[in-house]
Design a protein around this nucleic acid. Structure first.
Lengths: 344, 344
DNA sequence: GACGATTTTGAAAGCGCTGTCAAGCGTAGG
DNA sequence: CCTACGCTTGACAGCGCTTTCAAAATCGTC
């Protein structure tokens, strides 16, 4: 592996001082055109690329923004990451992504890593780590949180108004004549799972529908858990005409359980999700769900971080997601789920 | 923002030299227990975290592995990334992910960035950049490519045997009695799209099925393109009983087109994909597809990189994907797609 | 042509850490 | 008691870059 070429080599080769090369690289000061040309030619010829670590060390900024995500393979956070990358594009900053897997300990390790890498700022996506840990970090670098609240840093958090999102779902279903609505929630160690469930309960009451706790099950936001919860619900033989899932993935799972039982969507059962993952547009039938502009939220987070780094004091405000009505919801059938057309 | 604490501070506070602190940090040499304890206490108290950039500069290794991916939001690469992260876990190395968006120019920029960050090794996932560019980089750092060939670096590439994958699909369908099989391919600027199409054509001939070019369309690996291609196919009124898609996402799109036309899967049309995305298990009906162990491939890539860094000379071999038969394929219906049950 | 005001340039001192080298210490053997 | 050897430790010179500071070069003006 060829020895790396340094700024020093370039300087010597071009017959100027290192300082001059540095100045040309960063546009820090004027340089006479002929020297500039000479240096640039040498840079080309030697294929010189400045060592970012050295730059970081010398001027105290690493030009990287740490991103604490949870799962790289998650469609949800993946889209947010893409948004962040996009939002940072054009700036000199680059994202440094680490995942915490929804484990406080791993999240802490990830944060430590990012701090050791001396990131200039931090974006936190969800997570279960205590606020205190984040506050500690926020004392060192500008921090923006998406989809989670950090006490003490209200203006640095984009919250999703889960309450409002679920209310729209319930209102939509109520409008279609549904009265017996089942619910599959997420694991309540995640804040949004709590909010969505509470939102559901509140909305049901507000709309004057019967509140039926026995129609409410809990999954863990995965397809498999949605499938299982739906299976239990169906096995219980309790009547319901609509099934609200706390996220799209569980709705996908539930969809499969319905299919296995030979139940049609939306004719027999109306089904809804939450998140509006990209693939929700392509389920059979396309899923009615609550749209979160995840990509845009990522961009917003990135832009906010850039503004913080520029010394501004932007404040973020909660985001109200929007119901997207597709084809998985329809008018309530007369008799709730009476005669399955025979299990598949 | 509090001033960052350096190794120097720790040394002074503990009454030892910087060298000693460094030695304790890296376990480079013996240190008497009492000093070690004193230093460790100070590190704790001051919450000292070594500056990775400085370490990198001083000893010439950044302990980061550059990963050139294409789209952060892609389910396919997301899973591979997760595998890489997993494979690197436990080692002192960390991934540094940049995406190229299937554009040669952006991929080049991404590579430049990674080189400037002085990554110790590189993993390339797919991409359309010329081999020459990768060879150039490979001259500087160990490189591993997944899902793409790099001429001159045969042992550094895990190739997917797309040919074999598609053959399994066609054989499966032929075994079910299908003779008129339609095909939706990917954009042939991607190598695997070419291989899959060729694999399809070869397999059709081998199985003694009629080769029908008019049943072969091209999409771009997105759901939307699959949807559209399938719509065209159906509108053409050419008879076929099975639809093979070059990837799962297009199969999802095609599924929607079929649904809109009121065609049942698999009763009216058998449908297959390629990739076995996680969500393929949850489509209605679950999709028969070709499984690629993407996560495992990511892990494999990471492990190979670690071995390269350790000075070994591992060689990678092509990966043969496996057909996963689920419920979207069934026996060929007597008359190919005659009476749609009425468009939805 | 000379003088001061500007601009361009280079020397040198770090940034925070590692690794070499030699000094300092303790121990064992003669 | 002295020498030889092994181990721990600190001083110091970088790693590749930026940035300050002052010297050198350039310009404009009288």
């Amino acid at each position: 592996m060829s020895a790396t070429v340094t700024l020093m080599h370039v300087a010597r080769e071009a017959g100027v001082s290192p300082s001059t090369v540095s100045r040309i690289l960063n546009g820090t000061a004027n340089v006479t055109p002929d020297k500039r040309e000479r240096v640039e030619a040498v840079i080309q010829r030697l294929n010189f690329a400045p060592n970012v670590q050295a730059q970081a060390l010398a001027n105290g900024r690493s030009f990287s923004v740490g991103v604490l995500t949870q799962k790289l393979s998650s469609a949800f956070y993946g889209e947010t990451l893409a948004g962040i990358e996009q939002g940072l594009d054009g700036s000199p900053y680059h994202p440094l992504v680490v995942s915490g897997h929804w484990r406080a300990k791993q999240e802490q390790q990830a944060l430590d890593l990012l701090m050791r890498r001396r990131v200039d700022a931090l974006i936190v996506l969800g997570g279960v780590i205590e606020d205190a840990a984040l506050q500690r970090v926020a004392a060192q670098v500008p921090l923006v949180a998406v989809g989670r609240e950090v006490s003490g840093l209200p203006e640095r958090c984009v919250l999703i108004d889960n309450h409002a999102g679920i209310r729209q779902v319930v209102a939509h279903l109520a409008g279609l004549g549904h009265r017996d609505i089942a619910y599959i929630g997420g694991d309540e160690c995640q804040q949004d799972a709590v909010e969505r469930r509470e939102g559901f309960e509140d909305a049901v009451r507000e709309m004057g529908l019967p509140f039926q706790p026995h129609l409410m099950l809990t999954g863990n936001y995965t397809e498999a858990s949605g499938e299982q919860a739906a299976a239990e619900l169906l096995a219980s033989d309790l009547p319901f005409t609509a099934l609200v899932c706390a996220n799209d993935q569980m709705a996908f799972g539930a969809r499969l359980s319905l299919y296995r039982r030979g139940l049609r969507v939306p004719e027999d059962i109306s089904l809804t999700g939450f998140d509006d993952l990209f693939s929700s547009r392509y389920t059979t039938p396309p899923l009615t769900t609550v749209h979160q502009a995840v990509n845009e939220l990522g961009q917003l987070a990135a832009e906010t971080v850039l503004r913080l780094l520029a010394g501004e004091h932007p404040r973020m405000s909660p985001y109200v997601p929007q119901l997207v009505i597709r084809e998985s919801t329809g008018p309530a059938s007369g008799v709730p789920r009476t005669t399955p057309r025979g299990a598949h």
